[in-house]
């Protein structure tokens, strides 16, 4: 069984490599170091955001508010940067704080009010959106200080800063899930919430922490994005939701909880980014990207269900 699961994990990496090879054959420019770095840099905010979703999925829930939280955090950062005279670090802290707060509310709705997570976080989606509109009004914020933009555009030791941040986040989440009792408990809640409760785990608290983490990571993704684009509007976050669900599932994280991890999510996101990058290189209109992603989501989830049925 371990061999089987090893092969399954390996197969995803294999898919990524195969896809890359096909693209490289069609367009040799794909393999240029600059293009490869570009792909990883593009994927970085999505990987960070998807990491949060991965943790929520591990508990057997889903966080539909993720795109909305990205938007809200970005707009709050933009507001502090352009509408106040506060230091840029305050912008980061308040953006991250807003993410945590959104997660706290979602978590309470799920754990205490016992709303299904899809409904609770869908509500949060609207609230976050509403707040974003209320704060920003009709005009986008743009033109941020250079120190802040460094987060999105800077280069450290030849590698873009977003990649450094993404690697750090991935490492921390990996260690958190694997080597902390809270991480273990998250798997337990997803694997069997009843047994978790009957084993004396504080399921409510674990769920609330989970959604707060998801909010925090979404906010971090939003900050990097804002810093990179040097501008922010209300549509900045929404496109991140679908890939955030698709990439963990493609990476082997089960929609029913208890199984999966951050490694697969990174591969899943890279597959999608490579797909988009390839479409650009091959001059396929970016308008078809949504179509490709939709198809990939369905296929990925179907594969997940199919494997589960086969191994059950």
């Amino acid at each position: 069984m371990t061999l089987k699961s090893f092969l399954l994990r390996f197969s995803r990496l294999l898919a990524l490599v195969l896809l890359s090879m096909v693209v490289a054959v069609l367009n040799p420019n794909f393999l240029k170091i600059s293009n490869l770095i570009n792909i990883v840099r593009q994927a970085s905010p999505q990987i960070i955001i998807s990491a949060g979703m991965t943790i929520v999925l591990l508990t057997g829930g889903i966080d539909l508010s993720i795109g909305s939280v990205v938007t809200l955090a970005s707009i709050i950062a933009g507001y502090v940067l352009t509408q106040t005279k506060l230091h840029w670090s305050i912008a980061i802290v308040s953006a991250l704080g807003s993410g945590l707060l959104c997660g706290l509310v979602s978590g309470i709705l799920v754990a205490k009010v016992k709303l299904p997570s899809a409904i609770a976080t869908y509500g949060m989606l609207w609230v976050g959106r509403g707040l974003a509109f209320a704060i920003m009004g009709a005009f986008p914020y743009f033109g941020f200080p250079n120190a802040f933009r460094y987060i999105g555009r800077g280069i450290l030791l030849g590698i873009p800063v977003p990649i450094w941040i993404m690697v750090a986040v991935a490492l921390v989440v990996y260690l958190f899930l694997k080597y902390t009792t809270l991480g273990k408990s998250i798997y337990a809640v997803g694997a069997n919430p009843y047994a978790a409760k009957a084993s004396g785990l504080r399921v409510d608290r674990i769920l609330i922490y989970t959604y707060m983490l998801s909010g925090l990571l979404a906010a971090l993704g939003g900050i990097i994005l804002t810093a990179r684009l040097n501008a922010v509007d209300q549509d900045i976050g929404a496109p991140f939701l679908l890939p955030a669900i698709a990439s963990p599932v493609m990476g082997g994280t089960s929609m029913t909880g208890g199984r999966g991890g951050i490694g697969g999510t990174i591969i899943g996101t890279l597959i999608m980014t490579v797909l988009v990058n390839a479409m650009n290189l091959l001059r396929i209109s970016s308008l078809w990207q949504q179509f490709a992603i939709g198809l990939v989501v369905v296929l990925a989830v179907w594969l997940d269900m199919w494997i589960k049925k086969k191994t059950a």
Binding site: I245, L287, W288, Q289, F291, G294, L295, V297, V301
Partner: peptide
Amino acid sequence: LGTQGIAAG
């Protein structure tokens, strides 16, 4: 959601 992506695409 998948069909949404496909149709919108």
